[in-house]
């Protein structure tokens, strides 16, 4: 509120500094927002491709699993899946995109050779291999999708935050500062005019007094 500000020259200078800083911040944030949006659009395109691949892989994996369950029986498939205790290792590191920390997920031992899946080769068949391979592919797609979609969501959050900051500067902070500045300038000018008027009055009074004393 402009009325809360003391109309002093010191405050005016401070407000000028704040306006300058805020305008610079506003420009920087606008550039950041635009940059983030561009990054987001790129990631969005990638995410759409990844999501499409993921859905296609899921369809294939589910179909192969259904086929394997149908032809070999649930008991056989459950048995083959139980032949391996070891889980794929997931390592999460991070990278920085314009100040936004996004995860980089790396996986090891997802895709396996036939001799690494635990079950014996002699007592199983390729329906089980194909279902296992399809699910390994699906898991890799899920890990990639997790990385891309998390990055996308984090960028989206950051864009939202930056947009709110830009808007706050543009529609609240800077207008308030401009208003305060105008208020102080107006008050100072008014004070100046009052001061001149007062000085003129004093001068006139002094002249009147001098005239009176010279008459006496």
């Amino acid at each position: 509120m402009a009325e809360d500000v003391k109309p002093t020259r010191k405050n005016l200078m401070e407000i000028d500094d704040r306006i300058e800083l805020s305008e610079r911040g506003h420009d920087t944030l606008e550039k950041k927002r635009d940059g983030l949006i561009m990054e987001f659009m790129e990631i969005l395109e990638h995410a759409q491709t990844v999501r499409g691949d993921l859905e296609a892989s899921y369809e294939v994996a589910q179909k192969r699993l259904n086929m394997a369950r149908a032809m070999e029986g649930d008991v056989a498939i459950r048995g083959a899946s139980a032949a391996l205790k070891e889980h794929p290792e997931i390592t999460i590191t991070s990278k920085n995109i314009m100040g936004v920390v996004v995860p980089q997920i790396e996986s090891t031992s997802v895709k396996k050779r036939i001799d690494q899946r635990g079950y014996g080769v002699l007592g199983t068949n390729s329906r089980i291999d194909e279902a296992a391979a399809a699910y390994e592919q699906l898991l890799e797609e899920i890990i990639l999708a997790a990385e891309v979609e998390t990055a996308m969501k984090k960028l989206l959050d950051e864009i939202e935050t930056t947009k709110r900051r830009v808007n706050a500067l543009e529609f609240k902070l800077l207008p308030d500062l401009y208003e305060n500045k105008a208020f102080i300038e107006q008050k100072l000018e008014e004070q100046e005019r009052e001061e001149i008027f007062r000085l003129k009055k004093i001068k006139a009074k002094k002249e009147r007094q001098e005239a009176a004393s010279s008459t006496e």
Binding site: A83, L84, K85, E86, G118, Y119, G120, V121, L122, G123
Partner: peptide
């Protein structure tokens, strides 16, 4: 290896 692979293969081989 901590994998059942050698045991499973051994069983199937003996059977055949």
């Amino acid at each position: 290896t901590n994998l059942l692979f050698p045991l499973e293969n051994a069983i199937d081989r003996v059977f055949f």
